[in-house]
Design a protein around this nucleic acid. Structure first.
Length: 673
DNA sequence: GTTCGTTGCCTTTTT
DNA sequence: GGCAACGAAC
């Protein structure tokens, strides 16, 4: 069926264009003002990728492109929010209607609208990794697999396999063969489990993170009319961090951008660090083959770092074979201080060094906000956290456990989820499990009784007490159980619809949860405070499903970040290198540079033929180095006091021997006592 | 059927 | 040091 489509023209040389020129270099300017059609911006670290993309959005708006026609895809929600704020500053107007955010949040938004076209209802729950594990346990339990007879992959590993399969489009058996050869003989069983898992998700009306992408793509394939609607809407598609997109994301982008392909992607192949999640930097390497008439812009000036740091970073990445050779030239003049390399005896000495140096730098006038400590894995931050706490240095940490993933937050959310999605097995069982005398078996029995009652219908119109009071429960649990049922009743209104999230919180706390909290946790007071923060945060939402979606999709933030309690208080940032992507600080400490820590042991164990894992670690190392603007400190401890294997001698990271020694200044750490 | 204490096992990165 | 899996006791 033919369709008329008019391409919007960008008028040339508007007044604003001249203003932009002042702030941008030639390549950036060319990219920002380039005509419609596909374009690829390859930009090295610190070369103003975000700036280019931000100005491009501003430029489009300035040239009369309606906000609603722009789609901005970024790696985190935070990045999208910050970018749009900058656009607002540039054009002096709000950007409310721009669709911006992560692939997952955009996928979710689309799926909620069109769930019925896929045979789903729009009140589906979103499962995080832990929920997913719970479901997989149930699925394994319901299957006839004897997990004890042979070593069977744990739910966590299964989740990894399924996820990778979804994100790369490869079949489970292929994946098992290549990535998990030791489970090769189980490939068929694992494939069957995947089918069962897919069934289960549908039964319990729940989607995992991958579904938000995969099902959105499926929706577009199955329903051309819906696809075309979005294609018409998103005339302009902009994608940040394109090197970290996977197969599914690339397909989604291609579908949304078609047919006019007013698509601008920005990225740096040298910073691709998510291949374990299915990211494939061939997407960026082959962009010009996929989009034949694509324009290409290369930005090779680094504005961020002093030459000393940049030279080191360039040397560090040079050992990688698979990359577009870029010669990143410094914009900043003067050598600056050379990056420091410090060998320390132990993790504690490392922490002491970092803490002391932070204090000295603060005395020199550098704010704590402008310093960061980066590491390969969350647990590398242990000693540093303790040392900073002891010395009273405030820090902000992106922890492994996100705010929403903490048990008590998930408990409270479970009450909300079940009022919204009565098929949510995970939430239901979680709630009844809180009762004394109720374990896995009783929880399942209650769940079965619930399933058989009309109250569990997908769109049931009933109070919970209509059916639940008659269920058979263990005697020990009886009093608490009734209280719980009436609490659930309090969460829905006369029309049996969920109340507003902020109204629910007091009922949940007063009804049953506060007692439970006190009996179960010694630090219940802290947890209660968290829940009060959650209450505060919930006040921003009127619709429950939006609130719950937001919680699940919120990227690694602590409670303060989520509730925006204290936005930019003075604090040192502690973060994994992965989460530091796209950020910058004046001073960066990169710690734990020991072989096996960084690069990580697992890639070193892989057979030596395959260098791809090591190359990715090297890119990660490169990302870490290039976060620093003025000063960079590299440290490694000689000894690691492993908790279960005693003291382990460490060797310096092999990455440290891949550059000439005169690129760094060696610091010898002595002790004053 | 639940709970509680013991043993054994391994710590990557995240939307 | 923390969690899951297992077996013994209530």
């Amino acid at each position: 069926m033919a369709r008329d489509y008019t391409l919007n023209r960008i008028p040339s040389a508007s007044r604003s264009e001249i203003n932009y020129a002042r702030e941008l270099n030639e390549q950036q300017f060319a990219a920002v003002t380039c005509p419609p059609g596909p374009s690829l911006v390859i930009a090295g670290a610190g070369s103003g990728k975000t700036r280019t993309l931000t100005h491009r959005v501003a430029y489009l708006l300035d040239n009369g492109i309606p906000q609603g026609n722009i789609l901005l895809l970024t790696f985190t929600n935070k990045a999208a929010r910050e970018m749009l704020e900058r656009v607002e500053a540039l054009i002096n107007s709000d950007t409310k209607e721009i669709w911006g955010g992560t692939f997952h949040s955009v996928g979710n938004r689309i799926l909620r609208r069109h769930a019925s076209s896929l045979g789903w209802t729009s009140n589906y729950s979103i499962m995080d990794r832990e929920d997913q594990k719970d479901v997989l346990k149930t699925v394994i339990g319901e299957s006839d697999i004897d997990t004890k007879a042979t070593r069977f992959p744990k739910p966590e590993v299964l989740a990894d396999i399924f996820s990778l399969s979804q994100n790369t489009g490869q079949s489970v058996s292929d994946l098992v063969e290549t990535r998990y050869p030791y489970f090769d003989h189980l490939a068929d069983t694992i494939s069957k489990l995947q089918e069962a898992y897919e069934e289960k998700k549908k039964e319990i009306n729940s989607m995992d993170f991958d579904d938000l992408l995969v099902k959105a793509l499926f929706l577009f394939h199955e329903h051309p009319e819906i696809r075309e609607m979005y294609q018409r809407q998103f005339e302009w598609v902009l994608v940040d961090e394109y090197q970290d997109t996977n197969q599914i994301q690339a397909e989604l982008i291609a579908l949304l951008a078609a047919p006019q392909n007013n698509l601008m992607v920005v990225g740096d192949d040298a910073q691709s660090i998510y291949s374990w999640r299915g990211a494939d930097f061939r997407n960026i390497l082959e962009f010009q083959d996929t989009y034949e008439n694509a324009r290409k812009f290369v930005i090779e000036t680094n504005y961020r770092s002093v030459p000393g740091i940049l030279t080191l970073a360039n040397a560090a990445i040079a050992s990688n074979t698979e990359q577009i050779k870029k010669d990143l030239a410094p914009y900043r003049a003067g050598a600056g201080v050379l990056p420091a390399l410090a060998e320390v005896q132990s993790p504690n000495e490392q922490a002491a060094f970092v803490a002391q140096r932070i204090l000295e730098l603060r005395d020199e006038g550098i704010e704590l906000n402008e310093m960061a400590v980066l590491y390969r894995a969350h647990y590398h931050s242990m000693e540093i956290q303790m040392e900073l706490t002891n010395r009273g240095i405030p820090f902000q940490i992106t922890s492994g456990l996100r705010f929403f993933e903490q048990a008590h937050i998930k408990d409270a959310a479970a009450f909300m989820k079940i009022t919204c999605n009565r098929k949510d097995e995970v939430a239901f069982k979680r709630i009844v499990n809180m009762l004394p005398g109720v374990g896995a078996k009783s929880a399942d029995s209650l769940w079965q009784q619930w399933l058989q009652s009309p109250g569990a219908d997908r769109e049931a119109k009933s109070m919970f007490s209509d059916y639940m009071l008659d269920f058979k429960v263990p005697a020990k649990a009886k009093p608490g159980y009734e209280q719980l049922v009436y609490t659930l009743d309090e969460l829905i209104d006369e029309e049996f619809q969920p109340r507003r999230p902020a109204e629910m919180m007091p009922s949940i706390m007063g009804g049953v949860y506060e007692d439970y909290l006190q009996s179960k946790f010694s630090n219940w007071e802290n947890r209660k405070q968290d829940l009060q923060q959650l209450q505060k945060y919930s006040e921003n939402f009127t619709k429950l499903d939006e609130f719950l979606s937001q919680l699940s999709l919120l990227a690694g933030q602590d409670a303060a970040g989520a509730t925006q309690e204290e936005p930019d208080s003075e604090a040192v940032c502690l973060s994994t290198v992965h989460q530091a992507k796209g950020l910058e600080w004046k001073v960066v400490f990169l710690v734990w540079l020991a072989d096996g820590m960084f690069p990580n042991n697992r890639v070193l164990d892989e057979d030596s033929e395959d260098e791809s894992g090591l190359e990715e670690e090297r890119r990660l190392f490169y990302v870490a180095l290039t976060r620093a603007m003025d000063e960079l400190y590299l440290t490694y401890p000689l000894v690691w006091h492993g908790a279960f294997n005693g003291d382990v001698l460490q060797t310096p990271s092999r990455f440290l021997s891949e550059f000439p020694t005169d690129l760094v200044e060696e610091w010898r750490i002595g002790m004053a006592w």
